[in-house]
Computed example of a mutant assay.
Amino acid sequence: MNRTAVLRRPPRYRGWALAAAVLAFAVFPAAEPRAVVHKDDTFITAQTAGILTIEGGECFTDPAYSSRAGEVVVLYRPCEERADNQSYAFLHAAEGPWDRPALVSFAWDGCGRDFTRRWGSRESSGLDYYPILPTEETWADGDRDVMCAVYRPGEQLTRSMVPLLR
């Protein structure tokens, strides 16, 4: 018996294998790489529709126009269902008059310290963060909370990124 003949796939199956591979790519196309979005303290604000419904540890989408809502919104999304961001901390700013530069500094410093405590550096973790700030209008209504959000540049989250702190 010729062992080589036994180990080779019979020619009639080659066509089926090729057809199956083509069908697999048609039904399950390869994920296209996502553009790296620069997320800073203006990317989402307290006035972005939907952001005030996001609680600590919850994941959510990047802002996008919703024809149903007629405005740009963010939506809650379970982290396991390919979310764009996850809230990981809330900071409470001190009372006082609206001062955007001071608030920006407070937010980046506070979110940065918490990020480093949880994940270390941006480089080693592959993650990045940004603060979501009150606006002058929400500040006038008494909003003093800054949300810190974590994300994976160029990719979506497929699980919760928030580690348990000891």
Rank of each mutant, 00 (worst) to 15 (best):
S124L: 07
G112H: 12
L133Q: 07
V150M: 04
S125E: 00
R100G: 02
P134F: 04
L91H: 13
R118G: 12
R100H: 04
D99R: 11
F90A: 12
E123A: 14
R144N: 03
L91S: 06
A140Q: 10
W98R: 08
P153I: 08
Y129T: 12
G120D: 14
S125I: 04
A89D: 10
L127M: 05
R152F: 02
D128H: 03
W98G: 03
P134A: 11
S105Y: 10
T116I: 10
H92R: 13
P153K: 00
R122C: 01
T138E: 08
L133W: 00
G142P: 01
A94C: 12
R144S: 01
I132N: 01
I132Q: 05
L133H: 03
F90I: 14
R100D: 00
H92C: 09
E123K: 15
R122N: 07
F115N: 07
P97K: 11
W139Y: 02
G126C: 08
M147R: 13
A94R: 11
F115E: 08
L91T: 13
V104K: 08
A94L: 14
R152H: 04
Y129W: 03
W119Q: 14
H92Y: 13
S124M: 06
A102P: 07
A107S: 11
P134M: 11
S121G: 11
E95K: 15
G126V: 00
A102V: 06
W108H: 15
L127I: 09
L127R: 01
A107C: 10
D141L: 13
P153Q: 07
E137V: 12
C111K: 09
D128T: 03
Y129R: 01
P131H: 00
Y129E: 11
V150A: 13
Y130T: 03
R113I: 14
R117F: 04
V104W: 05
W139S: 05
D141N: 12
L127G: 02
E136G: 05
E95I: 02
F115G: 09
R122Y: 02
L91K: 07
I132H: 01
V146S: 00
V104D: 04
V150H: 06
G120A: 07
D143S: 11
F115D: 09
T116Q: 15
R113P: 15
F90R: 11
R152S: 11
R113T: 15
Y130N: 10
F115M: 09
G120Y: 01
S125P: 01
S105F: 09
E136F: 00
G120R: 01
V104F: 07
T138Q: 02
D145T: 15
S125C: 03
R122E: 04
A102D: 02
A89T: 14
I132W: 01
S105G: 12
A93H: 10
D141A: 14
P131D: 08
L127Y: 04
D141P: 03
R118P: 10
L91F: 11
